[in-house]
Simulated assay, not measured.
Amino acid sequence: MSAPNKSYDPVEVEALKPEEIDRARDAALAAIAEAGDLEALREVKAAHAGDRSPLALANREIGALPPQARAEAGKRVGQARGAVGQALRKRQEELEAERDERVLVEEAVDVTLPHDRTPVGARHPLTTLSERIADVFVAMGYEIAEGPEAEAEWFNFDALNIAPDHPARTMQDTFFLQRGEREGKTPEGAGDEPGAVLRTHTSPVQIRSLLERDLPVYVVCPGRVYRTDELDATHTPVFHQVELLAVDEGLTMADLKGTIDHMVRSLFGEGLGTRLRPSYFPFTEPSAEMDMVCFACRGASVGDPDRPCRTCSSEGWIELGGCGMVNPRVLTACGVDPERYSGFAFGFGIERMLMFRHNVEDMRDMVEGDVRFTRPFGMEI
Rank of each mutant, 00 (worst) to 15 (best):
F348W: 14
V120I: 15
T284M: 02
V217M: 09
V219F: 09
V44P: 12
A108Y: 12
L320C: 14
L57W: 00
D165P: 00
R81D: 00
A40I: 01
A40C: 04
E368M: 06
T228H: 12
G378I: 04
T332E: 11
F283P: 13
F176A: 08
C323A: 15
V111A: 15
D255S: 02
D173Y: 09
H48G: 01
A58G: 14
E93K: 04
T332P: 00
P237K: 05
R213I: 13
P148R: 10
A15N: 13
A300M: 07
T259A: 14
E188D: 15
H201D: 11
G82N: 06
P125A: 08
S130D: 09
V136C: 12
M140Y: 13
V217F: 08
V217T: 11
E183I: 06
L41T: 06
Q178H: 14
M355N: 03
R117N: 06
P328K: 04
A71H: 01
G378W: 07
A122S: 11
R102K: 05
I32A: 01
R375N: 07
E96H: 04
V109Q: 13
V219L: 08
D291W: 08
A49E: 03
S313I: 04
E20C: 02
P66S: 05
P305G: 01
V136Q: 09
A28V: 04
V109L: 13
R117Y: 11
G316L: 04
T112F: 07
I207M: 14
E270K: 07
R117G: 02
D306Y: 02
A73F: 01
M263Q: 04
R169W: 13
D229R: 01
A73G: 01
E212C: 05
G303D: 13
G36L: 02
T127E: 03
I133Y: 12
F344W: 10
P278I: 08
A30S: 14
T236H: 08
E131C: 11
Q86N: 15
S313G: 11
M366H: 10
P67K: 15
V302A: 05
H124K: 06
G191K: 02
T186G: 10
R298T: 09
P167R: 02
D248E: 08
V109F: 13
R99W: 10
E181K: 14
G121C: 14
R52N: 15
A300Q: 09
G322Q: 09
D37F: 02
R179F: 04
S279K: 00
E19N: 14
E149I: 03
S203R: 02
A27W: 04
R23F: 06
P10Q: 02
P237I: 12
A71S: 06
I21V: 15
A145M: 15
R179Q: 13
E106I: 01
V326K: 10
G250Y: 13
A288Y: 07
E19M: 11
E230L: 03
G74M: 03
S203Y: 08
L231R: 05
S53Q: 05
P376A: 05
E101A: 12
A30K: 12
R99T: 10
A49I: 02
G184H: 03
A71N: 07
E131L: 14
D304S: 00
G316E: 06
P119A: 11
E96C: 00
P114V: 14
Q86Y: 11
K257T: 14
D337V: 11
E243R: 09
A145V: 15
I162L: 15
Y341R: 10
Q241T: 10
P216Y: 07
E149K: 07
G316Y: 03
I21Q: 01
L160K: 03
L126W: 12
D37S: 11
V371P: 15
